[in-house]
Write a protein that binds this DNA or RNA. Structure first.
Lengths: 337, 337
DNA sequence: CTGAAAGCGCTAACAC
DNA sequence: GTGTTAGCGCTTTCAG
């Protein structure tokens, strides 16, 4: 079943068929109808491979995900991002090629293969790291990309689609302040990531703004185990915090569990704020107060921007929905001293 | 940068280069070395698009995921499955093309496009449904597939890679029985899915085997909200169960939260078992007793099987690791009546 | 407005 | 063993 068959059945030339399927003018109304009908009857669609070859375009984008097993299956970001990207791509017929890798070498290989084999026309760069080498490497490979990270991530604004991580953390800190908390700790994510830093800095800034002593901060790595460990560390302090802002929900929930284990009651003795609003957040005990970003919409915007970059059109960058702060049961008034 | 450039630089013909890169004999040692070196120096790799066209093979597989937003970002299955597939595919240089859809029509379209545009050489069929039409439709489209589901899913054993859902549920029921529970309820997942049914049937069977009256079962749909609702329903009964086996962790955790809301203590008043062992399971209060499947390994096997099917080699089907049953704090001795 | 023809970069059959 | 050549199915330029 080839374009030739369709052309024959519609009694036109191959190019006429090609023109119709590429939305170009130059085919009469009658011929166009016959062509569409013939294609319909034959169940024909342009072969993506042949198309890719002759247009030197794969009509696909790549996403390389480097993530440890635990975070992969907990992180709400990945599936939502993928779903959003698909949603933004479905109208324009690009496919999404996924690659999951587990270390730096295989990650680099993945990009190199994408580029050299010309499997994709561009990539999404997520989990931006401090001093990330990838933008430069991709430039060298000639592979267009959009970067996906907090707005602070860099100056390369034209291809950075930022979500305002900081705003959420700031609201969390102010919320706790309003509840009377003064010692507000932070459990940060891995310090290699730009978004970890953005969240940490937002916490620091806001504490500063409120005239609070920038309380204790503990480095962790987004896993449950690290969240529990960090929590114990904070509660072991001579002057433990009365509230903790975690860099993600998994650590926050593990932290609540750790607190519970040592008889510290949430929110009575300790208020807890997470980040992500995973679907489980309303269903843990107590329900988790947290920050929600609209990852899906964000990903849609990323997809559309990448299409624009690759096709050389001007990306219409719609405003991203603001972050939400969801107050649930894990935060409460600070205990009177 | 094409095969011609490499051939020229290595002073051989294009076919010699092609042969080397396709692992075929017929090229001398010396020539082979020169070719590999030339390719290395030029940073050349066969263009996937041209390759796909001339071999009539996309060298890629497709995965269509139909899932509601909430379940997408909570379900541990999807990311682990993807990671496992990648792991099984990485050695054989197949790519994975992902498509996320949200309804039946777009799902069907996705498969049709995959087939007609020849974007992929085969697909993974997950979330098998009762009377699933897809295997037949894919046969009509001429698109090979492996099906991914519980072993009971059907007779089409050659392309069904099954994980033994039932064994996990049976162990859960026996565990509860050993703890003295006699009224053991089940909160089932959506009844359209084969795995929901497999889990429900396993529960029923095991209750039967133990000579227990098949306690109450409530239909739910894998979401947290439905798990909470089902739990309330069960606890409202004149003779509420002393233990509940849920079809997934999300419902189980939401169920614990619901129980907690009405003053029913877990595990003192009610024992709870989940299914999946999500990374959060150890960190909820109390830690969740649950069933764990090695989705990653399973997915690897799926990938290798699909490669074998597509390439016409015999799939070596390694034994899948058995399901694990993880006892944590959410199950305890039945209260004496 | 339409049709013929030359690629896109690679593979594989077939001569050398 | 090595090189030549005809496609794979589509796009696109260029005559008609």
């Amino acid at each position: 079943m080839t374009i030739g068959d369709v052309a024959a059945r519609a009694k036109v030339s191959k190019s006429a068929v090609s023109f119709v399927f590429n939305g170009r003018s130059g085919v009469g109304e009658a011929a166009r109808d016959r062509i569409l009908q013939a294609a319909e009857e034959l169940g024909w669609r342009p072969d993506a491979r042949a198309r890719a070859l002759s247009r030197s375009r794969a009509q696909a984008f790549g996403l390389v995900v480097r993530r440890e097993a635990e975070l992969l299956s907990t992180d709400p970001f990945f599936p939502q991002f993928v779903a959003g990207v698909e949603s933004g791509l479905s109208e324009v017929k690009y496919a999404l090629v996924l690659q999951v890798v587990d270390n730096e070498q295989t990650e680099r290989d993945a990009y190199v293969r994408f580029a050299h084999e010309a499997r994709v026309d561009g990539v999404f760069l997520t989990d931006l790291r401090i001093d990330d080498e990838r933008p430069r490497e991709l430039d060298e490979l000639g592979l267009p990309c959009v970067m996906v990270g907090p707005t602070e991530a860099g100056s390369d604004a034209s291809r950075l689609i930022g979500l305002d991580d900081a705003a959420g953390i700031r609201r969390a800190v102010r919320h706790l302040y309003a509840l009377g908390h003064r010692r507000i700790a932070h459990v940060a994510g891995s310090d290699r990531y730009v978004h970890s830093e953005a969240r940490r800095r937002a916490w620091l800034d806001e504490m500063d703004q409120l005239g609070l002593e920038p309380g204790p901060v503990v480095d962790a790595d987004f896993t449950g185990a690290s969240g529990a460990r960090a929590t114990h560390e904070l509660l072991d302090l001579a002057r433990p915090p009365s509230a903790i802002v975690y860099a993600n929900d998994l650590m926050a929930i593990a932290g609540m569990s750790a607190a519970n284990d040592r008889g510290v009651r949430v929110p009575h003795d300790l208020s807890v704020v997470g980040f992500d609003d995973i679907p489980l957040a309303p269903y843990v005990v107590p329900p988790l107060t947290t920050v929600r970003q609209d990852v899906f919409e964000w990903a849609r915007v990323c997809a559309k921007t990448l299409v624009a970059i690759v096709e050389g059109t001007t990306p219409e960058v719609p405003a991203l929905p603001p972050v939400d702060f969801i107050v649930r049961g894990s935060t409460g008034p600070a205990k009177q001293l």
